[in-house]
């Protein structure tokens, strides 16, 4: 895998069907999906800045364990969070095949460490299902919804709830 394998362009939704339909009708959005273990997660494509091969990070003192430190993204310092560890799993033993999805959360740029990027899917807002209550190991507020894609269920991430709090400082 090459670095910056994919750069997204903003507003890809413009050409999608349904845009011209009146309000209230289904809206389509594209999501980048990626894998952590065998579980698939999706992030709104307009929030994805780029996808980068894992490179060792520099640890920051006294941070939650899922905060993997910072990396140098062409001169800016970007924090990297381990998605597996964020959802209560072990720390990812990152290798060169792992990827960091660089996303925008508000005006901050944040990296999310995942196992692999899998696909780009187009989802109608009608197809997004709410997260059923009491799902055991999921931080519910951090999952914006569930989608049944061809390859199976995709959990759509609410990045702000997941990492925004950590980034903004919990004080």
């Amino acid at each position: 895998m090459t670095e910056a394998a994919m750069q997204t362009e903003p507003a890809p939704a413009a050409a999608l069907p349904g845009e011209t339909e009146p309000a209230g009708a289904a809206r389509y959005k594209q999501y980048v999906t990626f894998l952590v273990g065998d579980r698939a997660y999706g992030v709104d494509i307009v929030l994805v800045r780029e996808i980068k091969q894992w490179t060792p990070t520099t640890a920051l003192p006294n941070q939650p364990h899922y905060m993997r430190g910072v990396l140098n993204l062409r001169g800016t310092i970007v924090p990297v969070h381990d998605l597996r560890a964020r959802f209560g799993g072990n720390l990812t033993e990152a290798t060169e095949t792992h990827v960091v999805v660089i996303v925008w959360i508000g005006d901050q740029t944040v990296g999310v460490l995942v196992d692999a990027v899998s696909d780009i899917i187009t989802v109608s807002s009608d197809d997004i299902r709410p997260v059923p209550p009491s799902e055991a190991d999921l931080d519910q507020s951090s999952i914006g919804g569930l989608v049944n894609a061809e390859s199976g269920m995709v959990a759509l991430l609410d990045l702000k709830a997941l990492f925004g709090g950590a980034s903004m400082g919990m004080v």
Partner: peptide, 27 residues
């Protein structure tokens, strides 16, 4: 000098970061 706060937050004990010759970040 590079800021940590721009994309993260203030970290106790660290005033900022820099990028070393090998591209790695040093605090």
């Amino acid at each position: 000098l590079k800021s940590l706060e721009a994309n993260f937050k203030r970290v106790e004990g660290v005033s900022g970061a820099t990028i070393l010759g090998d591209g790695r970040v040093a605090l």
